[in-house]
């Protein structure tokens, strides 16, 4: 690989690191966008089958071209800026909604060494970027200069901040037992232990010793991405579509892309932190990127499953669950794990 790239590197001279990084970024973003497109298709199909329908099946074979058709439609629609809106921020809102979801992929390792930026503080970086996602919603809600978007933005910011705390505590547990903020190290630290030596690696991943944290993290992840059953931000029966009411065409599509990119991001985070990333679940199969993809797809399926299964939470119940249930549980569990690590019963030596 290095030798193959040598002549190309000479062509660009000192600019080569920049060009090479750009190539890597495109190599992540382009497939991600295709994944986002087909996640919308998968969602409609999965929910369709769960509700005994067949979902989209008109455009292309078994409806496979449906996401492309939707994208085209949105691309050619006019973007209407309301006359009372704050124009600059109105345009900035959707961009803010999508950008963090893409930035975070810089530190996600897809396999051993397959990462754009192998940061020492990768987990912290992820948490920081995840905390920026709320800005898109808030800015959009305020800049629209309309009641429903504003209410949606208020709900979103309160909800996302609350669940971030619980998510942060769950991450602290992972951090405690892997003693590193580097995501590659966190994955590698899951590939050892008693069960791993017996060839049952999937039992030595973080999800089992940190089961309560795993559950809290997945649920908080759903709440953090404003997905059903926590989608009061855009609850159509109460506030039409929340912060997206005034948006049309591609500006609306950017919100959509951001939401689905966030879902994929949270699933990838879950699979790295709790499900052993690219590690193989059993001893006799080799590790590889496909395991990471499979685990991420599984968590994504959980997202869709939850949406098809549960009715929407009432807003005060959401806040209660975040503050009065999850935060106390995670706080206690941080202490439990810390004490556990110091006792002779510790399994992480």
């Amino acid at each position: 690989m290095e030798q193959l790239l040598q002549p190309v590197a000479q062509l660009f001279g000192p600019l080569w690191p920049l060009v090479w990084t750009l190539v890597k970024i495109v190599a992540i973003i382009a497939p991600l966008m295709i994944c986002v497109a087909y996640l919308t298709y998968a969602e409609r199909k999965v929910i369709g089958y769960m509700q005994v329908r067949i979902g989209p099946n008109r455009v292309g074979p078994i409806g496979l071209l449906q996401p492309m058709a939707d994208g085209m439609k949105l691309l050619f629609k006019e973007i209407i800026v309301p006359s009372g809106a704050n124009k600059g921020l109105f345009i900035l809102g959707p961009i803010f909604a999508l950008a963090p979801a893409l930035v975070a992929w810089a530190v996600i390792p897809f396999g051993e060494g397959m990462v754009v930026a192998d940061l020492n503080a990768g987990l912290l970086f992820l948490l920081a970027v995840a905390s920026l996602e709320v800005y898109g919603v808030i800015i959009a809600g305020w800049a629209s200069n309309s009641k429903y978007p504003f209410l949606g933005a208020m709900r979103a910011s309160a909800q996302m901040i609350s669940y971030e705390v619980a998510m942060g505590f769950a991450l602290i547990c992972v951090l405690l037992i892997s003693a590193s903020l580097n995501l590659t190290d966190i994955v590698m630290s899951q590939g050892k232990g008693m069960f791993h030596d017996m060839g049952l690696s999937f039992l030595s991943w973080n999800w089992l010793p940190l089961l309560p944290m795993f559950v809290v993290f997945v649920i908080s992840g759903i709440a953090e991405t404003n997905r059903a059953p926590f989608d009061v931000v855009e609850g159509e029966a109460e506030i039409v579509a929340g912060h997206m009411v005034e948006y049309s065409g591609m500006a609306f599509a950017l919100f959509f892309l951001g939401e689905y990119a966030n879902m994929i991001l949270v699933s990838a985070m879950t699979s790295i932190l709790f499900l052993g990333g690219w590690l193989s679940p059993v001893g006799f199969l080799p590790d590889g990127f496909h395991w990471f993809a499979l685990k991420t797809a599984f968590i994504l399926f959980l997202f869709l499953w939850a949406r098809a299964t549960f009715p929407r939470f009432r807003y005060d119940h959401i806040m209660r669950l975040g503050w009065k249930v999850f935060i106390p549980i995670t706080l206690v569990w941080v202490i439990v794990v810390a004490v556990w690590m110091m006792t002779p019963l510790s399994i992480w030596r």
């Binding site: 940061l119 020492n120 503080a121 912290l124 970086f125 948490l127 920081a128 905390s131 920026l132 709320v134 800005y135 808030i138 305020w142 504003f150 933005a153 208020m154 910011s157 309160a158 901040i161 971030e164």
Partner: peptide, 25 residues
């Protein structure tokens, strides 16, 4: 890097969101 990312996490991610929240209302 720890302080830098924590600055974003705490001030941008939490404090400023609440700030905006209040200022907007």
């Amino acid at each position: 890097e720890f302080l830098a990312i924590t600055l974003v996490l705490v001030y941008v991610g939490a404090v400023m969101v609440l700030f905006l929240f209040v200022v907007m209302m």
